[in-house]
């Protein structure tokens, strides 16, 4: 399942990425394979989303979230 398909409050563990360039940026921000992610909220217009990862809040666009595959 992709991160972008997760509903608010949903949780998942990062399995892999579908985009190498994006994966480097995400991993630098602490979003690594094996990390638990939960979707905290969605912006009022439906995009971007805010997630909880390695102890802090990160916002990213849905297009970027769709490159993250969850277990």
């Amino acid at each position: 399942m992709k991160l972008s398909q997760l509903k608010v409050g949903g949780k998942g563990i990062v399995k892999e990425f579908t985009d190498l360039e994006m994966s480097i940026k995400l991993m630098e921000m602490g979003c690594l394979p094996g990390e638990e992610i939960s979707v905290e909220r969605v912006a009022p217009l439906g995009d971007p989303i805010a997630i909880n990862v390695s102890g802090y809040q990160l916002s990213l666009r849905k297009r970027e979230a769709s490159t993250i595959i969850l277990l």
Binding site: K25, L26, Y56, Q57, L58, S59, L60
Partner: peptide, 11 residues
């Protein structure tokens, strides 16, 4: 650069 929006939401 390729546009992206990966941003920390600080407390």
């Amino acid at each position: 650069e390729r546009g992206y929006f990966i941003m920390e939401l600080p407390v």
